[in-house]
Computed example of a mutant assay.
Amino acid sequence: MPLEKVCIIGSGNWGSAVAKLIGINTQRHGDLFEKTVRQWVFEEKVNGENLTDIINREHENVKYLEGIKLPENVVAIPNVVDACKDATLVVFVVPHQFVRGVCEQMKGHLAPNARAISLIKGLEITSSGTRLFSEEIERILSIPCAALSGANIANEVALEKYCESTVGCPNVEDGQIFFRLFDTEYFRINVIQDHVGVQLCGALKNVVAVGAGFSDGLGYGSNTKAAIIRRGLMEMRKFGQMFFGDMVQTETFFESCGVADLITTCSGGRNRKVAEAFVTTGKPIDVLEKELLNGQKLQGTLTSMEVNEFLTARNMTAEFPFFTTVYRIVYKNAPVESIVRDI
């Protein structure tokens, strides 16, 4: 069988940590993967030098994952078409607002038998409906797309601290290929077929983390934070059941992509961090994003706005008091104390 040609689309904090995993595994499973891994890196200047040149010389993404060496078989490429040319396995790790534009550039350049996997923790939600990013990738590129999500803070994964993650892939055979692409002794993969639930958890948990950050900023303590996490998990599950029906399995919420990722994100993720600073500094969210995230994007606040737009169009905001309260605090100047008073 021809070897799989792997391409990574994205090179931020998480994309760089994933590149380390994939670079190691393509060498370890030489019977399945080509050794060279091409990674599309959005070109930036770092101290007057192209970031791609630094990565290819130093084997380190000095901007987004400083101090972590990448395998030498990971090659940074600044042009997305060059990076994805004839790839058979495409790993998407870009902020969700860039998915459509990047896929449009890639169209027609992949191998005929290409498959993709989305590591994007988001969900396109508008007043007219919802769309998974795997569906957007499938629609534009006409290829099947699985999903990976879990309790995976990028820096800890890069430092090889033990964790788990969940691959959702309807095709069992492809699921086993993705298992071998990602699974290591410290990054353990469980493959399930519920790719919808995997992505739904990855999107909605960011909204819950914003609420947890509000609680931390107010100094409310562990009991309150636990209550907020529980309420958030219940609304995540309710949203899945109400709007996706049998496509989302209850068991998925007990995978790493579900409750484990929720706990991790509410303890140490960027959404919690910025939400806490929102309370303690009084600064707007967009200002804090620029100050605290080193160019990364905040997902939870945007998702809360999209969820509210979706629910408002259906006159269902009262059915989801937690999600609605997070939105009102961020965008409608509701008192931060509403996070416990109004849910």
Rank of each mutant, 00 (worst) to 15 (best):
K273R: 15
T264R: 01
D261R: 05
F253K: 03
K225F: 08
S256L: 03
V287P: 11
L288D: 13
T281N: 08
M247P: 04
F239N: 02
K273P: 11
F243S: 01
V248W: 10
Q249L: 14
M236N: 06
G245R: 13
D261V: 00
L218Y: 11
R272T: 03
N223T: 03
N223I: 03
I285R: 12
D261N: 02
R231D: 08
F243M: 00
K238E: 10
T250W: 14
C257I: 00
F253G: 00
E276C: 13
E255I: 02
Y220V: 05
G245K: 12
I285H: 08
L233Y: 06
V259A: 00
R237P: 04
G240V: 04
T250M: 15
T250N: 15
I263E: 07
V259M: 03
R237D: 09
V279D: 12
T265F: 05
T252V: 09
M234N: 15
E291G: 01
R272D: 08
A275R: 10
I229C: 07
C257N: 02
G245D: 14
K290M: 00
C257K: 00
L298P: 10
R270T: 04
T252P: 13
A227S: 15
E291M: 06
T250D: 15
D261H: 05
D261S: 04
L293V: 02
R270S: 04
Q249W: 12
I285Q: 12
T280I: 09
K297W: 03
L293N: 00
L218H: 14
E255F: 07
